Simulated assay, not measured.
Amino acid sequence: MTYATDRLSPDKVKLGVCCTLWWNDDFPTIDAGISFDQAVSDMALAGFQGCSIGHKYPSDATELMAALNLRGLRVSEPWTSTYFTINNMRQKTIAAFEETLAHIKALGGTELVVAEFGASSHLLPVDVFANRPVFTDSQWDALTSGLDELGKIACSAGMKLSYHHHMGTGVMTRADIDRLMASTDPDLVHLLLDTGHMAFAGDDPLDLARAYADRIGHVHLKSIRPEVVRRVREEGRTFQESIELGVFTVPGDGAIDFRPILEVLATAQYEGWLVVEAEQDPNKAIPLEYAKKARAYLADVLGW
């Protein structure tokens, strides 16, 4: 098969890496004691151009910019959780989003990533599949209208908003994503394609990429280990246990073939971030080793 990944050139896409290789922001006990300075140095050493923001990062924008500039890194995205589907949280969600927007703008970033965590099971000590929320029509209306409002705020600030589908949430499966995409303004709300979360949920990330190629605004590249997915389903494991068991890994490892996915993005003339991500236990998976493995794989696929 001939691939067109040469069209995903360095002048069109940037390669980033999430700090979840070094520690976990959702579950602070998944940590090997790696400092912020070591993590961002590893990112630069592995050959990445940018990174997500995590809880160990300096909160002061000037201090953070200095540390990243020293290593030739940029911020690929911040994360903001939304809570439109639960009571009395709309204005608080919007206020938190605006605070994040101001911070990322001060850092020179242009991307904003959100996910709805109202009633999510992913942080709870429960079966991540059996207990994820299923939204009512009124909750869907609250979510999609809220996302459109956040999209307007982002656009007015010259920023782009992308929605992150996520395990254990009300927007987890392909059917959920289809409904969200159909119910939001395509000029305001883009899709964050997360290959690992889509495959873990039981759907095909390649089909998702094909369906929404022109609406993808941000990309998280991570793979899965199918034997761990099966165990999680059969044993009713939590999301935290899934991570600790090694359900996710980086491109170049695991079961997902990223070449056709990147071909779809190339054909759609995607421009933006390709961000390597794998929530792993750094006590078991040496972060720099896996970051370099992912970067070498992408170099082989992309040609740079």
Results as ranks from 00 to 15, higher is better:
Met1Trp: 11
Tyr3Pro: 02
Ala4Pro: 12
Thr5Ile: 06
Thr5Val: 14
Asp6Phe: 09
Asp11Tyr: 06
Val13Asn: 08
Thr20Tyr: 06
Asn24Phe: 07
Asp25Asn: 13
Asp25Ser: 12
Asp25Arg: 08
Phe27Arg: 06
Phe27Glu: 05
Asp42Gly: 00
Met43Asn: 11
Gln49Val: 01
Cys51Trp: 04
Leu70His: 15
Gly72Leu: 06
Val75Ala: 04
Trp79Arg: 02
Ser81Gln: 12
Thr85Lys: 03
Asn88Thr: 11
Met89Val: 03
Glu98Thr: 10
Glu98Gly: 00
Glu99His: 15
Leu101Thr: 14
His103Pro: 00
Lys105Gly: 12
Leu107Pro: 00
Val113Gly: 03
Val114Tyr: 02
Ala115Glu: 10
Phe117Thr: 09
Phe117Leu: 15
Gly118Cys: 09
Gly118Trp: 05
Ser120His: 13
Ser121Leu: 08
His122Thr: 07
Leu123Val: 14
Pro125Ala: 08
Asp127Thr: 14
Arg132Thr: 10
Pro133Leu: 12
Leu147Gly: 06
Leu150Pro: 12
Lys152Pro: 01
Ala154Val: 04
Lys160Glu: 04
Ser162Phe: 00
His164Glu: 09
His164Ile: 07
His165Val: 03
Val171Tyr: 04
Ala175Ser: 13
Thr184Ala: 10
Asp185Arg: 07
Asp185Trp: 05
His190Ala: 10
Leu191Ile: 05
Leu193Cys: 06
Thr195Leu: 01
Met198Lys: 10
Gly202Pro: 02
Gly202Trp: 03
Leu208Glu: 04
Arg215Asp: 05
Gly217Leu: 01
His218Arg: 08
Arg230Phe: 05
Val232Gly: 08
Gly236Glu: 07
Thr238Cys: 07
Phe239Tyr: 15
Phe239Asp: 06
Gln240Leu: 13
Gly246Cys: 06
Phe248Tyr: 12
Phe248Leu: 05
Asp253Tyr: 11
Arg259Asp: 11
Ile261Leu: 13
Trp273Ala: 01
Val276Tyr: 10
Val276His: 11
Ala278Ser: 10
Glu279Arg: 09
Lys292Leu: 09
Lys292Arg: 15
Arg295Cys: 10
Trp304Tyr: 13
Trp304Val: 04
